[in-house]
């Protein structure tokens, strides 16, 4: 596991000043005027946002800032009221979620979605794209899919080894611990050979022993040329691995920039303090201490 104390950060991602909606040198996702409201409440209202390619971008913000909703909108799991967004130059407006995934933009969920009554190996094999045997007509003729299925199995076992899950491959996913399910979900996402990996709170509910290995996996994704966009509440993790941080509050992007600078910004502090009534106080105080430390430096 290549998990150094200070991972190499990507720099020079943006053009001009690091302000909300600033241009990126090589954007993977470009979002314009995406708006979504539920009843009278505006959940997401993003003017312009670009996600840099081959970098790890963290999406942070207090609870109810619209991070997960934005995730849902970008992956086609929800439809915005207005707005457009592009993935590697292709417009994704109105594209159903499964097609978004086929284009190489894969996501995980805040509440882990392990397929409990399938074995770990079957979970993995489901991730693979363009399987012949997944067509109902070819499914009846094992000759047409056996060979491909064997190859997929090899690839799955390979990945399971990397994630230390190979010993569990024959078990039902239901028997895994919470952290192992997170690992499985990430490994399964990698089976789709994604370009952009979107992780919704990958660390939530994971015990500290597994946190290090998960961090290592996320960093590896970048090494292998993938782009990562993740939502996270753990500020230590964000500072540790993110190359770029986007801060959301009340549906809007209020700040973005490299982690070292963005957390000092008044807008970010306001976002958290202004929202503290909606947030768990313990979490808020934790966050303030991080921000204070940054100030002291």
């Amino acid at each position: 596991m290549s998990n150094n104390d200070s991972p190499i950060k990507s720099t020079g991602l943006h053009i001009g000043e690091a302000a909300p909606g600033c241009k990126k040198t090589d954007p993977m996702l470009v979002i314009d005027h995406v708006k979504k409201s539920f009843g009278g409440l505006t959940a997401v209202d993003v003017e312009h946002l670009e996600i840099p390619k081959n970098a790890i971008t963290a999406l942070i913000g207090p609870n109810g800032a619209g991070k997960t909703t934005l995730f849902n909108l970008l992956t086609g799991f929800d439809t915005p009221d207005t707005g457009a967004w592009e993935f590697l130059g292709t417009s994704l407006s109105g594209v159903p979620s499964y097609k978004v995934a086929q284009m190489g933009q894969v996501r995980t969920f805040q509440l882990t979605k392990a397929l409990s009554l399938l074995t770990v190996l079957d979970n993995m094999k489901l991730g693979s794209k363009n399987q012949v045997g997944e067509s109902i007509f070819r499914a009846l003729f094992p000759g047409s899919w056996r060979k491909q299925d064997a190859e997929i199995e090899l690839k799955a076992i390979e990945l399971l080894k990397r994630f230390n899950l190979d010993a569990k491959q024959a078990d039902f996913a239901a028997s895994l611990s919470g952290g192992q399910r997170k690992l499985l979900e990430m490994a399964r996402a990698l089976m789709t050979d994604p370009v952009l990996v979107m992780l919704d709170e990958p660390m939530a509910g994971v015990n500290p022993a597994l946190t290090q290995s998960l961090l290592g996996h996320v960093l590896n994704l970048k090494k292998e040329g993938m782009t990562v966009l993740f939502v996270e509440h753990d500020m230590h993790m964000v500072r540790h691995i993110a190359d770029w941080v986007v801060v959301m509050a009340e549906g809007k992007v209020v700040a973005e920039g490299p982690p070292e600078t963005v957390m000092n910004e008044q807008a970010v502090i306001d976002a958290y303090l202004g929202a503290h009534q909606d947030t768990d106080l313990g979490v808020v105080t934790g966050r303030i201490s991080i921000i204070d430390q940054e100030k002291d430096k």
Partner: peptide, 8 residues
């Protein structure tokens, strides 16, 4: 859940 997201 989101019933309306797939296809037209």
């Amino acid at each position: 859940m989101n019933f309306l997201s797939v296809g037209n």
